[in-house]
Every structure is written in structure tokens, then in C-alpha cells.
Design a protein around this nucleic acid. Structure first.
Lengths: 342, 342
DNA sequence: TTGAAAGCGATACCAT
DNA sequence: ATGGTATCGCTTTCAA
């Protein structure tokens, strides 16, 4: 075990005091070049590595930020974390990562751990941003934080998101414009995702504005990838829809798979649109309708915003970024095939 | 700013010494119930939050692990990080996350930062695990680490991966068995990913074993999503292939898109197989050939392995997990359409 | 320009 | 069962 050397040893080797070593590290300009060199040489010789924890204990700031997302298994969150990490790297900040698995209990626990680590600030995607104890806690402790993807009702918290209701509205409208008259939304449980609820509202509004009757909803639990059964009544029989508006890419992917298993081609027999636009719109096929969120950029912006809050140079506010609507040529009205095909 | 309260204040409030407060935190059983209660009450009253950095400074272990991946924008790595985070959470470990963007320079810098944080161990996915200064550094400092996805040549480092060459071999063989005689591999630059090279070797071996001549390669830089031009000579003209073996899912997705843009249907005119199996095999369509890696489980196992190394209860070794071959019914020989179609 | 010394908030040894 | 105290590695006045 190569026991780490300390400032004290470096100081000894270089024949200076630890104060000077500290200066060489933090403000080399205040030290004569010759001394700097001598100290640096000692550092190299001893393989010195500053112990950040010593510094953290002493200083007010830790130069670390906490990140909480529901899961990294969802490319949307993963990509945003990539954006955060990227920006943090440029700022020399350390990222402490946690995930909640959409569980409010774990959200609170994770944030608590992060606070014990004395992070300078937090970036969070909560299951539900309204009436959330995590936010109360953060407010009470007066810790800078910005919500990512959440669109909270209250205006005294910082957030970065797209307009969830609006993006669902726009996508639904686009699909209606393509000739769809029978649509349903596939969404996660509202308790696990306030985005789901907001998007469903936008979906309903678009239908209502088009005079298309009640909004149908297929609600599925987080983690469900098998939508064959849940979607059965939506894809077959007299009430079959011609298009599915999916709350997320992951759901869209699962829905596409379910459509195929029901013998429907996508697009063609059924159109599928996914909000997020990472996989469905961005990666897999630009031919399907999707409302694209600039996920990675949102992560970067979240960190930039957080930095402002930490410095006290910015105030909490909601930044709502424009989403980009992608309506590929494959979107079209229903053409159910009479016989299922593989 | 709610200034955080310290052990000292809690001790004062509870009328005990800080030593007792520490005991209440770390070994409550050694303290009478009545005292424990009094101290806990004081903690609640003062909203006490242990400062982990104080503990880290004092203790040998920091109960934190560093993670380095090329990018979280690749679902394969993101999913593995999810597995790591999951397992870390269960162990009460904090995860420090960094990404290298496939840049060896940044790999070294990131690891250095992680070491300054005195992480107990590291989990890394390196661009190239052979002859990598990062590994030398870690070996020299005697820091526990496990490589994830990398299959290093040297046997004195811990690693968890699937057999890259073998999975490419198997997938290629499966496609050959479906009637393909003309295949090419799409892979990233070998400098950016040793997996690419290993997979290409497996691809070449399979072709050679089948007596199918030289292995053709379309090598693309990291981040390229537009494969229309790079794949042109592979998809059109006299040397057009009937199938593409892709080194990664992300490349497979880009390749599928390029095929479509060249007027080829996938699968049908061209088959595409992607190693990884997250998106192509798992999410998008189980109909395409893919060699599936249990990505999230690999992350969990990596952490478990790392824990063993940290405790000194395990020795570095290579764990090569079985990959799962998924050959959907859509795989088939070439049937080029004479006229491009949208 | 440099150094001595006082903490930062914990842990843990050694007494009591 | 509890407390006093040295210590972890660093930053930062205040003097010299």
C-alpha cells in the first residue's frame, strides 16, 4: 500500500512550510518561481496527491454537485447526465450521482446522503415536483438546486424543462393533422412521473380542441416493457386506434413492439409518436412523429444555471426550452391490415 | 443560510460529550437507550447532519467509488452505471461519476481527480485497456479497480466483460448460417475502443472459418451518426453486402438509418446485427440479430467484485460473462430491391 | 516572501 | 458509561 504523502512531507522535502506548499497549489503567482519549482519537484518526487477531503472540510464550498435522476437506464436521463458531467468537468466540479428508481422514499434518502456530502448544489429529476418533501427540505436548508425535466407549479424553484403539456399537444395535433381520428395515449403512472400527467393533459386538450372526444389512456407501470396485453383493447377490436401518442420514448419503443406482436406494421397500420425524441425521433427512426427535447443541452444548462444559483448571481426561475417537433413522412391515417402478419 | 450544526452543538444540547454523540452515530448499542434518545432528540432539534467530509478525513476508507465511462450518451454504458449505482446504493456507497468522451487524456485526468477524492476503488471502461497509463497509475498506487467491458491482455487486472471476439464470431456465424455470403463490419476506431478491434477479429475469424474471404471494414469515428456516405460503397454497386455486422448498437442504429436512406429495407434487403443488444436486440426490435450483453448486471457485478478487492477478499481476475445470441426470424439472405423506395 | 498556528468536523484512544 | 484530547490534511489569517 503506497501510503499517500501529505503536504507536510512535501514541505519537508522542499524545505518550506506547509503554508507555502498550499500557496503553490492555490495561488502560485504569490510565490517566487524558484520556490514554486522546488515545491513542485518535491511533489513529483513524493508522488503527492492533494487530499480533497481535507480541503472540503476547511472550505465553505466543496466544489461538488449532487445529481439525482430516476434511472440511468432511461436514455433521456442518461443523456442529460452526460450533459451535466460534461459541463461539470469544464468547471472542475465533481459529480455525485444517485438514482431513485422513481421511488419518492429513495429520493429523500438520496438527497439526504448528498447533503451529508455537503454538495454545493443539486440537480434533480423528481417523480413528482409538486408537494414534494425533498423540495421542502432543500428550501429549508437553503441549498441551491435546479429541477430538470420537472415543471413544478410553484414559481420559487429553479427548473429546466420543455413544456410537457405543449409538446404533447403539438404532437397530438400533428398526428390529427395527418388524418388520425382515433388516438390513445400510453403513459406511465402519474404518481411516478408528473411529466406523464402534464403530457396527458396536453393530449386531452388537443383532442378536445379538435372535437375528437374523450382522451383514452393506457397507463403502465414503470419498467413494464411488455405492452401486448395492456394495449390489446387499444389495438384490436371495434375500438382500435389508428395512432398511439406515447409519453416517453421507452414507452414508444415498447408500444411499437406490441403493435408488431399484434400483427400491425408501424408506421402504416398504426402511427406511434414518442415524446423525448431521443430514441424514437433521434436514433431509431426520424420517420415517426416525436417531440424532441434537447436532453444533453438541458443537462449542461442545468449545471450552468446551478452555478449561477450557487454564486448567488441568479434567482430561481423556470426555464422552458422549445421542443422540436419531428413529423416524418411515415405518419399517416389508419390502414389496418385485415390479417396479422409477422 | 442555515449554517449546519456540528457534533459539538449536538453534544452541548444533549449535555454529553462529542465522543458520546459519535458513539450514538456509529455504535448506538454501546450507549444506554436513554442517552441515545436524548442525543437523537438533540440531533432532530438542531437538524443535525453529519459532515461526511470530516469522517472521510479521519478514516482510512471514504466509502465512495469512482466510475469512469466513455460517455453516458451510449445506453450501454449508462445502463451499466445504473447497475453500479443500484449496487452502490445497497451498500451505502457514494458514486463519483466521470466520463472521458473516449479521450485517453481525459481518462487520465478523470482518474487523477477521482484519486484526489480518495475513492476506495474504481470501475472503469477505458478506450484501450492495453498499455494504458491509467492502469499503470492505478497499479502503482495500489488502488483497487475493475475494468468494465474491457478485455485486457494482461491477467493481473480485474475485469468484467463478455467475450468480444466470441460474440462477434457467433453473431457473424449466425448471419452466415442464414445465408449471407457477403458481409461487412461497421466499427468504431480501434484507438477509441479496444472492443471494436476484438470484435473485428472475431468477425474476421468467422468469415475465414466459413471460407468467405477477407473481412471488409467500415470504420467510423465516434459520434458519427451519418453513415450514408461511409456505407455507400458497401450498400450499393457491385460489391454491395447482404448484411452488416455492427460493433455496437449505436452503430447498428445509424447503419439501419443509412440503409433506409439508400432505399434498402431492413431487415429484408439487408440484415443488420449489433453487438450490445440493448437497443437493437432489446428495445427496438428483437427481430434483428444481436449479441446481448447483460449490461446492468455487469455493472452490479463490477461493484460486487470491487468490494471484494477493496476488502482484500478477492484477487484480480477476468470474469467473462456469457453473451446471449438473439437471432430473430427476420434475418435472411440478400434480397436487394431493384428500385429504392421510401 | 514565508511561517506558525488555529481551526474545519469528525473518530478513537485512553482515562475515569 | 462517558469525557478529554490528539489527529486526519488542508486553508488562511497574522506576524515576522
Amino acid at each position: 500500500m503506497t501510503s499517500k504523502s501529505t503536504m507536510r512531507e512535501v514541505a519537508g522535502k522542499a524545505g518550506v512550510s506547509i503554508a507555502t506548499v498550499s500557496r503553490v497549489i492555490n495561488s502560485p503567482d504569490e510565490v517566487p518561481t524558484e520556490t514554486v519549482e522546488r515545491v513542485r519537484a518535491a511533489m513529483r518526487y513524493l508522488n503527492y496527491r492533494p487530499n480533497i477531503n481535507g480541503r472540503r472540510l476547511k472550505m465553505a464550498q466543496t466544489r461538488s454537485v449532487g445529481v439525482l435522476v430516476p434511472t440511468m437506464a432511461n436514455p433521456v436521463f442518461a443523456t442529460s447526465v452526460q450533459g451535466i458531467e460534461q459541463a461539470a468537468h469544464e468547471d472542475g466540479l465533481t459529480v455525485l450521482l444517485t438514482s431513485s428508481n422513481y421511488d419518492p422514499q429513495r429520493e429523500l434518502g438520496a438527497v439526504s446522503t448528498l447533503l451529508n456530502n455537503r454538495v454545493d448544489g443539486l440537480i434533480l429529476t423528481l417523480a413528482n415536483a409538486d408537494d414534494n418533501p425533498v423540495i421542502d427540505l432543500l428550501k429549508a436548508e437553503n441549498i441551491p438546486f435546479v429541477l430538470l425535466f420537472n415543471q413544478p407549479a410553484r414559481t420559487d424553484v429553479a427548473s429546466i424543462s420543455v413544456d410537457n403539456a405543449r409538446s404533447a399537444y403539438d404532437m397530438t395535433q400533428a398526428m390529427i393533422a395527418q388524418g388520425h381520428t382515433s388516438l390513445a395515449m400510453v403513459a406511465g403512472r402519474f404518481e411516478s412521473s408528473d411529466r406523464s400527467k402534464q403530457r396527458f393533459d396536453g393530449f386531452g386538450q388537443a383532442l378536445s380542441d379538435a372535437g375528437l372526444g374523450a382522451a383514452r389512456l393506457c397507463q403502465v407501470g414503470f419498467g413494464e416493457t411488455e405492452l401486448f396485453t395492456p394495449l390489446k383493447s387499444f389495438l384490436t377490436g371495434p375500438d382500435a386506434v389508428t395512432g398511439l401518442v406515447c409519453s416517453t420514448d421507452m414507452l414508444a419503443i415498447a408500444a411499437i413492439s406490441a403493435c408488431r406482436d399484434h400483427g400491425l406494421s408501424v408506421p402504416g397500420d398504426v402511427s406511434v409518436g414518442g415524446i423525448d425524441g431521443i430514441a424514437v425521433g433521434g436514433l431509431i427512426s426520424p420517420k415517426l412523429c416525436s417531440a424532441i427535447q434537447p436532453t444533453q443541452e438541458m443537462g449542461q444548462q442545468a449545471l450552468a444555471f446551478l452555478r449561477g444559483l450557487i454564486r448567488g448571481q441568479a434567482n430561481p426561475q423556470s426555464l422552458i426550452l422549445p421542443h422540436q417537433l419531428s413529423t416524418g413522412e411515415s405518419i399517416g391515417p389508419a390502414r389496418h391490415s385485415s390479417s396479422p402478419r409477422l
